[in-house]
């Protein structure tokens, strides 16, 4: 099904947002001291990448 303009806009914004979040998390991994937070950030980063894959999968 062809994307509507609204869907396309939200997809683009979401992908950009998730990508930016991934970049921030990667940066934070170099700064985090608490091992617990480090594990959390790693987990978030992994999910973030999954989200980008899921969202980009709708772009033909």
């Amino acid at each position: 099904m062809a994307l509507t303009q609204t869907e396309s806009w939200y997809l683009a914004e979401s992908i950009k947002g998730e990508t930016l979040m991934c970049q921030k998390l990667a940066n934070y991994l170099n700064q985090v001291q608490d091992p617990e937070l480090r594990r959390l950030v790693l987990d978030l980063q992994r999910t973030c990448r999954q989200h980008v894959d899921m969202l980009t999968g709708h772009i033909s």
Binding site: M1, L3, T4, T6, E7, Y10, L11, E13, S14, G17, E18, M21, K24, L25, Y28, Q31, V32, L37, L40, V41, L44, H58
Partner: peptide
Amino acid sequence: IAEDILTGKKYISNYYYAPAVLESMDPKL
């Protein structure tokens, strides 16, 4: 760092995903 991550999650959830769900016509999307 944790506060910034939380803020980012709140923002993208409220302003992107919540309306995107409601505005999407394609069921898969």
